[in-house]
Each structure stands twice: as C-alpha cells, then as structure tokens.
Amino acid sequence: MLGTLVNAIAIIVGAVVGIVLKKGLPGRMTDTLMKGVGLCTVFLGISGSLTCLCRCYGDCRCLTKWAYGRS
C-alpha cells in the first residue's frame, strides 16, 4: 500500500514538473530527452526478454538455439 502511494505521488509530482518545465525547455533539448527515454525503454525491454529466456531455459545457451530457430 505504501509503495502504491509513493508511486502515485511521484507520478503527480513528475507531471507537474513536466508541465512547468515544458514551456522553458528548448525544442532541441526536449527532442534529446525523448530520444534518451526511448532508448532506455528499448534497452529495458530487450534486457527483460533475455532475462526471461535465460530463466526459463536455465542458461543463455538457449539464446543461440532460439536465434537460429532450433529447439
């Protein structure tokens, strides 16, 4: 329950800060920040997928078999 409240408060504070700073940030900086967030999101997605595959099969040798289409 405490984690949910902290998360909700952090989202609200982040939204307010974003609204206030959006008017003050140049377009180039906004573009760079969005690209950075996108890159982090892609990295986390790939990392999570690889972690799940290794956990499911016990080791990372399964990744080479999976990449080449072998069972």
Score class of each variant (00 low, 15 high):
residue 1 M to I: 09
residue 1 M to S: 09
residue 2 L to Q: 04
residue 3 G to T: 06
residue 4 T to D: 06
residue 4 T to V: 09
residue 5 L to T: 01
residue 6 V to N: 01
residue 6 V to L: 04
residue 6 V to Q: 03
residue 6 V to H: 02
residue 6 V to C: 03
residue 7 N to P: 01
residue 7 N to H: 03
residue 8 A to V: 05
residue 9 I to M: 06
residue 10 A to T: 06
residue 10 A to M: 04
residue 11 I to Q: 08
residue 12 I to W: 01
residue 12 I to Q: 01
residue 13 V to F: 01
residue 13 V to A: 02
residue 14 G to D: 03
residue 14 G to L: 06
residue 14 G to I: 06
residue 15 A to R: 04
residue 15 A to D: 07
residue 15 A to L: 08
residue 15 A to T: 09
residue 16 V to F: 04
residue 17 V to M: 04
residue 17 V to W: 02
residue 17 V to P: 02
residue 18 G to M: 10
residue 18 G to E: 14
residue 18 G to P: 15
residue 18 G to Q: 10
residue 19 I to R: 00
residue 19 I to S: 01
residue 20 V to A: 02
residue 20 V to D: 02
residue 20 V to G: 02
residue 21 L to W: 05
residue 21 L to F: 08
residue 21 L to M: 08
residue 21 L to Y: 04
residue 22 K to F: 08
residue 22 K to D: 11
residue 23 K to D: 14
residue 23 K to V: 13
residue 23 K to N: 11
residue 24 G to D: 05
residue 24 G to H: 03
residue 25 L to Y: 05
residue 25 L to N: 04
residue 26 P to W: 00
residue 27 G to I: 05
residue 27 G to N: 11
residue 27 G to R: 08
residue 28 R to L: 00
residue 28 R to F: 00
residue 28 R to I: 00
residue 29 M to H: 10
residue 31 D to S: 07
residue 31 D to N: 07
residue 31 D to T: 08
residue 31 D to E: 13
residue 31 D to M: 07
residue 31 D to W: 10
residue 32 T to P: 00
residue 32 T to Y: 00
residue 33 L to R: 01
residue 33 L to H: 03
residue 34 M to C: 03
residue 34 M to Y: 04
residue 35 K to W: 10
residue 35 K to A: 15
residue 36 G to K: 01
residue 37 V to T: 07
residue 37 V to S: 06
residue 40 C to W: 10
residue 40 C to R: 03
residue 40 C to T: 09
residue 40 C to F: 13
residue 40 C to I: 09
residue 41 T to I: 15
residue 42 V to A: 00
residue 42 V to T: 01
residue 43 F to H: 03
residue 44 L to I: 09
residue 44 L to T: 08
residue 45 G to N: 11
residue 45 G to S: 10
residue 46 I to A: 15
residue 46 I to Q: 09
residue 47 S to Q: 13
residue 47 S to H: 12
residue 47 S to W: 11
residue 48 G to Y: 12
residue 48 G to I: 08
residue 49 S to C: 10
residue 49 S to E: 12
residue 49 S to H: 07
residue 49 S to D: 09
residue 49 S to P: 02
residue 49 S to Q: 10
residue 50 L to C: 07
residue 51 T to G: 07
residue 51 T to S: 09
residue 51 T to E: 06
residue 52 C to P: 04
residue 52 C to A: 13
residue 55 R to T: 12
residue 55 R to W: 14
residue 55 R to V: 12
residue 56 C to M: 13
residue 56 C to H: 13
residue 56 C to A: 14
residue 56 C to S: 14
residue 57 Y to D: 11
residue 58 G to L: 07
residue 58 G to S: 08
residue 58 G to I: 09
residue 58 G to W: 06
residue 58 G to A: 07
residue 58 G to F: 10
residue 59 D to T: 14
residue 59 D to V: 11
residue 59 D to R: 10
residue 59 D to N: 14
residue 60 C to A: 14
residue 61 R to W: 14
residue 62 C to L: 02
residue 62 C to F: 11
residue 62 C to M: 05
residue 63 L to P: 12
residue 63 L to T: 12
residue 63 L to R: 08
residue 64 T to A: 08
residue 64 T to L: 10
residue 64 T to Y: 10
residue 64 T to D: 06
residue 65 K to T: 15
residue 65 K to E: 12
residue 66 W to D: 14
residue 67 A to N: 12
residue 68 Y to H: 10
residue 68 Y to V: 15
residue 68 Y to W: 08
residue 68 Y to Q: 12
residue 69 G to M: 05
residue 70 R to G: 15
residue 70 R to T: 15
residue 71 S to E: 12
residue 71 S to V: 09
